[in-house]
Measured scan of single mutants.
Amino acid sequence: HAATELTPEQAAALKPYDRIVITGRFNAIGDAVSAVSRRADEEGAASFYVVDTSEFGNSGNWRVVADVYKA
């Protein structure tokens, strides 16, 4: 099962156990969220919340930071 994305309210009520950072070329924010979901799932997380997204220069590469939560 894939890790689910939390709302800001849900994330605020929970304590993350880790923070992950992924970088890559994403065509849309949805693609980045899917990549975070896969990584969170690999780490055994039940859910995640994207904290920050930023573009690296003009290369089209993105850096996505997310907190991950157990259950």
Rank of each mutant, 00 (worst) to 15 (best):
H1T: 08
H1R: 11
H1A: 09
H1N: 08
H1L: 07
H1D: 06
A2C: 15
A3Y: 03
A3N: 02
A3D: 01
A3C: 06
A3K: 03
A3F: 05
T4F: 14
E5N: 07
E5W: 07
L6D: 01
L6K: 01
T7Q: 05
T7C: 08
T7G: 06
E9M: 11
E9P: 05
E9H: 09
E9Q: 11
Q10F: 04
Q10S: 06
Q10V: 06
A11K: 04
A11N: 02
A11V: 04
A11D: 02
A11Y: 04
A12L: 10
A12G: 08
A13I: 13
A13C: 15
A13P: 07
K15D: 07
K15F: 09
P16M: 03
P16W: 05
Y17W: 06
Y17I: 03
Y17A: 02
D18Y: 09
D18H: 11
D18C: 14
R19Q: 06
V21F: 07
V21L: 04
I22D: 00
I22G: 00
I22K: 00
I22N: 00
G24W: 03
R25H: 12
R25N: 11
F26Q: 01
F26L: 03
F26K: 02
F26W: 10
F26N: 01
N27K: 12
N27D: 12
A28Q: 11
A28S: 15
A28K: 12
A28P: 04
A28E: 09
A28I: 07
I29S: 06
I29G: 05
G30R: 11
G30L: 10
G30A: 14
G30W: 12
G30Q: 14
D31N: 05
D31P: 03
V33W: 08
V33G: 03
S34Q: 14
S34R: 15
S34T: 11
A35N: 03
A35C: 09
A35R: 04
V36I: 12
V36N: 00
V36M: 13
V36S: 02
S37R: 15
S37A: 15
R38V: 09
R39E: 04
R39Y: 13
A40G: 02
D41K: 15
E42W: 10
E42A: 13
E43I: 15
E43T: 11
E43Q: 12
G44V: 01
A45P: 02
A45C: 11
A45L: 05
A46N: 11
A46S: 12
A46F: 11
S47Q: 08
S47V: 04
S47G: 11
S47I: 04
S47A: 14
S47N: 08
F48D: 00
F48K: 00
F48G: 00
V50P: 02
V50L: 09
V50T: 01
V51S: 02
D52R: 06
D52L: 13
T53W: 15
S54M: 14
S54V: 14
S54C: 15
E55D: 08
F56S: 09
F56C: 11
F56Y: 13
G57C: 07
G57D: 13
G57E: 10
G57H: 06
N58E: 14
S59E: 14
G60R: 04
G60F: 04
G60V: 04
G60I: 04
W62A: 03
W62V: 08
R63V: 13
V64Q: 00
V64I: 14
V65G: 00
V65F: 05
V65N: 01
V65I: 13
A66K: 00
A66L: 07
A66M: 07
A66E: 02
D67G: 00
V68L: 15
V68N: 00
V68C: 05
Y69G: 01
Y69I: 03
Y69A: 03
K70N: 10
K70V: 08
K70P: 07
A71Y: 12
A71T: 12
